[in-house]
Design a protein around this nucleic acid. Structure first.
Lengths: 329, 329
DNA sequence: CTGAAAGCGCTTACAG
DNA sequence: CTGAAAGCGCTTACAG
């Protein structure tokens, strides 16, 4: 039923080979022939069958993207940046959401790898051991997660975290809490180590709570722990936890940005819309996504046995309304 | 390099046909043979090439999903519901985000249609005329958008809107504003007609503003118009606009849920987290998504020339903190 | 229950 | 510059 290459060949009286070339490698064909083929193709409504093309050419012009949770506002900007960048280079991206199930990450990657030319995995939750299994399948780049020996786009939490602690110190805070992200989360380990170091360096007392899932509800739970403690400032593993925290504290009569200061991480779009607006550590997600596309395309075009590239990006603090002078004691 | 069916055939001394059957249609093969094949496949690390399988079988076990904007919190729950439901039936879904470009919707659909068995389009922005072009390509179902003669999962805005106006009337509001969504948006037309009808029926005065894009920033702009007007309550095209509105009004000293009542639409996860929490009209997105999967799979399995199915789902009002008694005049 | 053969719709060396 | 042929890795009637 659908129009095939053979139909176009027949209509023009040319061979399938020539039609194929005219359409996908025009330089190898007489300009006049090329135009004739193109016109016929258009008239017949010919659309190449990508599946057949992939099978014979061995490439798909598709990049696979695996993310933990598209409902987490940290990811959409990254996904969009990746799609935009890939589109610019003529590649399509197919997205898989694994719903925060670490076990699914590797399995889903296995399933789609034969359909894609390369993979990007953003903030994977699986163990490094399991991620290693993937490193040799396709060109693959890991974003926001260090995997030894693989291509990585990493975000250095240290700067932003140091700025955050510095900011709080300058406002007179002497005792603060860190709300941990998920147990075994690589990002959380990075963030935790950065804040411990920053607090030690700046002589600030630190208490920790958690682990908490990166969800608003977890922040709501955290609020009661914070309420019962004596800290004057809180840094949360991410904006979602921070937002849940603020909501619940408001219910209990705590004025965030007055009685208590709160800092989130990710600088997601919602941070500017919360009440009060949320001071947050900006993580360059879109930039990381674009970089990942460039890396993976480079690896596809130019498969080498050299050490895979590793790119480091920086974080920085964005000050808004949720941080203020420590209350007088 | 990768292990093929032929490798497994050779290893077992069987033909490729038998190996193929043992793996994908086990009932057609001697149980003993089947086990032998499976063991060999496992040992060799054989993974079927889906591209080849698709080319010869003619199906992909993939459903294509096209959404306007994954960063809009209305969509992730729908996407997740679709993925979950499809996964249950052994299908994979590939998501395409068209970044609110109506022109891309049809084009992207054309591009992926040869790679998928069916399409789901959620809240498409393109003209009905253009959408009609797609209706005959694949099995396709349109969610949250009426396209005559095609399979539709629709959401009836009338009930929720009537409840919203009723709720405000009961609180003493007599003059309210509707913030329109995008010009030419089908949903906006539905919502607008529903509110006009509800206000007329209940004797409430209505003023309109907009069009506004479904983005927080648009709500911020809307706030100043509302501020300058004399309404005591506002219903926004969606939660994002409502949230932007609330934020900006708070900045200007208006106490939402006291001086002014605000109602959003979509009941997105953020509505419970805003301050005050946002009264919103619940739209059954997840349910719509699951229904769409069932419809499209039904159409794939059972292509008929009968009238494509149309399912209607209901909306309802969820009351939270942003609506209150009209201020005494 | 199993195998040989054709075919899915392309691409791409190889000749000419 | 163009064509005939082989091949990508499977599936699936058709025989036996």
């Amino acid at each position: 039923m659908p129009v095939t290459l053979a139909d176009v060949a027949q209509a023009t009286g040319l061979s399938a080979s020539t039609v194929s070339r005219a359409l996908s490698d025009p330089d190898k064909v007489n300009p006049h022939t090329r135009d004739r083929v193109r016109r016929a193709a258009r008239e017949l409504g010919y659309v190449p069958n990508q599946t057949a093309r992939s099978l014979s050419s061995g490439h798909h012009d598709i990049i696979g993207l695996i993310v933990p949770d598209i409902a987490n506002p940290f990811f959409p900007p990254i996904i969009k940046a990746i799609q935009a960048r890939a589109g610019l280079k003529g590649k399509t991206v197919i997205i898989t959401d694994v719903d925060e199930h670490p076990g699914d990450e590797v399995q889903r990657a296995q399933v789609i790898r034969k359909r894609v030319d390369g993979l990007i995995m953003v903030s994977p939750r699986a163990s490094e051991e399991r991620l290693h299994e993937l490193a040799h399948l396709n060109p693959i780049v890991f974003v926001n997660r260090q995997v030894a020996g693989a291509a990585n786009v990493l975000v250095d939490n240290a700067d932003g975290m140091a700025e955050a602690v510095e900011h709080l110190t300058a406002l007179g805070h002497r005792k603060l809490a860190y709300l941990n992200g998920p147990r075994r989360s690589w990002s959380n380990t990075q963030r935790r180590e950065a804040i411990v170091a920053a607090c030690a360096a700046q002589g600030v007392e630190l208490v920790e709570y958690g682990p908490f899932e990166p969800q608003i509800q977890a922040g709501v739970r955290a609020a009661d722990l914070v309420y019962a403690s004596e800290v004057t400032a809180v840094i949360a593993y991410d904006d979602l936890i921070a937002l849940g925290l603020m909501t619940r504290l408001a219910e209990r009569g705590v004025r965030v940005g007055h009685d208590l200061s709160v800092i989130g991480i990710d600088d997601s779009p919602m941070s500017g819309m919360a009440y009060p607006t949320l001071t947050s550590i900006h993580v360059p997600g879109a930039e990381a996504g674009m970089t990942a596309v460039d890396l993976v395309l480079g690896m596809i075009e130019n498969p080498s046995d050299e050490e895979p590239p590793v790119v480091q990006l920086e974080t920085r603090l964005v000050v808004r309304g949720s941080t203020a002078l420590a209350p007088a004691t």
